[in-house]
Amino acid sequence: MTTRDPGQPRSDRSPWNWLLIVPIVLPLCTFLFNADQPRLAGFPLFYWLQIAFIAVGVAATTIVYRMTK
């Protein structure tokens, strides 16, 4: 773990932080899930795509955390 001097400001300006916009904007694109087909295990597109959005959010957060650590 790195330490910094108390007088130095913390730097949160990493380009990797822009990746966090993807899980916010992706569920707002309604054209992606405006259909009933295809079905996955009997579930309509809307329901399993919501689970996929969660997976994208977890992946993006993990990547940003590891790259800005």
Rank of each mutant, 00 (worst) to 15 (best):
F31L: 08
L28S: 09
W18E: 11
Y65H: 13
L40M: 11
T61F: 05
T68R: 02
A55F: 04
I54M: 09
P23A: 00
V22Q: 08
T68K: 02
P9S: 05
D12K: 03
R66F: 05
T62D: 14
R66W: 01
F46V: 05
M1W: 09
R13Q: 13
D12H: 10
D36S: 05
S14H: 14
F31R: 14
F33I: 07
M67Y: 05
T62S: 12
Y65D: 08
S14K: 01
A55W: 03
W18L: 14
S11T: 10
L20Y: 00
L19W: 05
V25K: 00
R13A: 15
Q37G: 13
A60D: 13
F53V: 01
C29H: 07
L32K: 10
M1Y: 11
L28C: 12
R4P: 12
W16E: 12
C29I: 15
G7W: 11
Q8H: 10
T2S: 12
P6Y: 04
M1S: 15
G7V: 02
K69Q: 11
W16Q: 08
V58C: 03
S11N: 15
L26G: 03
G42K: 04
L49S: 11
D12L: 08
L49T: 06
S14I: 02
A59Y: 09
P6F: 03
V22A: 03
W48Q: 03
P6S: 07
P15N: 02
T62Q: 03
G57I: 01
Y47M: 13
R4D: 15
T30V: 12
T61P: 08
F33C: 14
N17K: 11
V25W: 01
L45H: 03
W18Q: 07
V64M: 06
L45G: 11
Y65L: 09
I21Y: 12
R4E: 14
L32C: 14
P27D: 00
F33N: 10
G57K: 00
G57S: 00
F31A: 12
P27V: 01
R4G: 09
T68L: 02
V56I: 06
Q37A: 09
A41N: 06
R4Y: 09
F46M: 13
A60P: 08
I51Y: 09
P6Q: 00
L19S: 07
L40H: 09
I51G: 10
F43Q: 12
L40D: 05
I21D: 10
S11F: 01
D12F: 07
A35E: 05
Y47K: 13
D5C: 08
L28T: 09
